[in-house]
């Protein structure tokens, strides 16, 4: 089916564009935390769209591709959360544009332990 292949190719292309914009965000953003923002969202969305396009091109792979999407959807936010959290614990600075930092306030007020052993 030609038409399905074209639809699949268009969706895969959109995924590639999302991944490219994520990479552009990594270059343009001022600090690590904002880079993680673009990195996580764009890479999840781009990968999911790419896999979704593949479903149209190879309909027989649908089950495996859904499992891949699920794994990407679970592991991407977890890994970026762990990266950001450990970066914060080790004192990676926030950019000058930052307006508010409740976590630093609470660490100062002794409401949160500065170093968490349960990493």
């Amino acid at each position: 089916m030609e038409i399905l292949k074209i639809i699949g190719a268009v969706i895969t292309l959109m995924g590639s564009i999302a991944l490219f914009l994520g990479a552009l965000g990594l270059v343009r953003m001022p600090d690590l935390y904002n880079r993680i923002q673009t990195g996580t969202k764009a890479s999840t969305f781009g990968t999911v769209l790419t896999l979704l396009g593949l479903i149209f091109i190879f309909p027989g792979w649908v089950g495996k591709l859904f499992i891949l999407m699920l794994f990407v959807g679970i592991s991407n936010p977890v890994s970026s959360h762990v990266l950001a959290r450990n970066a914060y614990r080790y004192g990676v600075p926030l950019s000058d544009k930052t307006t508010v930092d409740r976590l630093a306030e609470d660490i100062e007020n002794k409401e949160v332990e500065p170093v968490n052993n349960a990493l």
Binding site: A18, L21, T38, A42, F45, T98
Partner: peptide, 25 residues
């Protein structure tokens, strides 16, 4: 998820980089 990506895309492309980051509780 789709909304998130359109939003982040808009911020990345825009020449002025309209971000106002912070950590909230």
């Amino acid at each position: 998820l789709v909304k998130a990506n359109l939003d982040v895309t808009r911020r990345v492309i825009s020449p002025k980089l309209p971000i106002n980051p912070g950590i909230v509780k």
